[in-house]
């Protein structure tokens, strides 16, 4: 127990320090090489360096590899490999955009990589039902989970600081769940993810000094799916990430299929003088930001605060579901 606590603390410190150093090194290089994007939600559309994904993923990978070596855990190595593949798919998308159908299909590969590590037990804990035995269908669920989580996190990366802060808020209530299940590999992976995201959050919060890009969001989504899979808490992560699914599912349903965010013709929201509001066009797709601004226009920091509040509610619902509605 004490060993796992010290390994978790080590994972946090290593990923935090490495992420800070990588951000300091990467951002000036992104600027000098012209890797710049426009912040479209602000007046004057300021230029912001992108992508910071390599700084976030590499710090996570270094920390996880050190800890997996010390703990002798194959599961942690599987997480590093599968999230690494998701990061590479995202980086490819940052450099040369992938098609709207290619990306979700490619995101099945990280799930396969995690499955071949041999550390996945197809026996997820389910609310109401308890521990299930899904020997045949589990692998379809695993592949779907990677695609859905990665795209959900990608959709959530729309405003300054929104993705990392909502990831913290929705998954922090799951830390007691991982401890209660004794899933220390899941706990270490989640804490290492927090450590690598904190320096990014400090720079990405309003007004953003850096954007993560798809390399960051797809990696974070795959990391959350990996943590859920190795700890058999898939259903609880799905509940805690419900605000991420709201955006993903309703955009998918309202446009009638898979499309890239940049290819959606009628935008869900419109921006006027820094105020964001739902597009009055009835054909505009529904997104979480459109829902929040459907009644009145709001400024970016207020929307992010509300998304964090909603994420915290879903995280607490998930924690409550585990401790009170799940037979163990």
């Amino acid at each position: 127990m004490l060993t796992w606590i010290s390994l978790t603390a080590l994972a946090m410190v290593l990923s935090l320090v490495a992420s800070e150093l990588f951000h300091r090194t990467l951002i000036p290089r992104l600027v000098s090489r012209g890797y710049i994007s426009e912040d479209v939600h602000k007046p004057g559309r300021p230029k912001v360096p992108e992508p910071a994904g390599p700084a976030v993923y590499l710090s996570f990978a270094i920390s996880m590899m050190v800890v997996s070596h010390l703990a002798g855990s194959v599961a942690l190595e599987g997480v590093v490999a599968s999230t690494g593949l998701a990061f590479l798919i995202g980086l490819l998308d940052d450099l040369s955009p992938l098609g709207p159908k290619t990306k979700p299909l490619l995101l099945i590969l990280p799930a396969l990589l995690l499955a071949v590590s041999g550390e996945i037990v197809p026996r997820p804990y389910l609310p109401i039902l308890g521990r299930a035995r899904l020997y045949y269908t589990y692998w379809i669920v695993l592949a779907t989970m990677f695609t859905v989580f990665s795209n959900g996190v990608n959709m959530m990366d729309a405003l300054n600081g929104m993705m990392p802060s909502s990831v913290f808020a929705s998954t922090l209530p799951l830390v007691p769940v991982l401890i209660a299940l004794g899933s220390y590999t899941g706990l270490i992976s989640l804490i290492a993810l927090y450590g690598s995201l904190i320096p990014y959050y400090i720079r990405n919060r309003y007004p953003a000094k850096v954007f993560g890009g798809d390399s960051n969001s797809l990696f974070v989504g795959a990391a959350l799916a990996s943590v859920a899979a190795i700890s058999n808490t898939e259903a609880f992560f799905a509940i805690s990430l419900l605000p991420f699914m709201v955006s993903g599912f309703s955009i998918l349903a309202s446009i009638g299929g898979l499309l890239e965010r940049r290819d959606i013709r009628v935008r869900p929201v419109i921006v006027e003088g820094g105020v964001i509001r739902a597009n009055p066009d009835k054909k505009a797709p529904i997104s979480l930001i459109a829902i929040l601004t459907s009644y009145e226009g709001k400024v970016e920091p207020r929307i992010v605060k509300e998304v964090v509040a909603i994420s915290l509610i879903s995280g607490l619902l998930s924690c409550f579901t585990f401790f009170l509605l799940t037979p163990r």
């Binding site: 389910l126 609310p127 109401i128 039902l129 259903a235 799905a238 509940i239 419900l242 605000p243 699914m245 709201v246 739902a278 979480l288 829902i291 929040l292 601004t293 459907s294 009644y295 009145e296 709001k298 509300e306 509040a309 909603i310 509610i313 879903s314 619902l317 579901t321 509605l325």
Partner: peptide, 28 residues
């Protein structure tokens, strides 16, 4: 708390209830 924020909370809570209802059906 405006109507948009309440609608967002509704979307999450109703999604949670639907997941629990589907699992209850499987249990039956």
């Amino acid at each position: 708390m405006d109507k948009g924020f309440l609608l967002a909370i509704y979307s999450v809570i109703s999604g949670w209830i639907l997941i629990l209802m589907s699992l209850s059906l499987i249990k039956v």
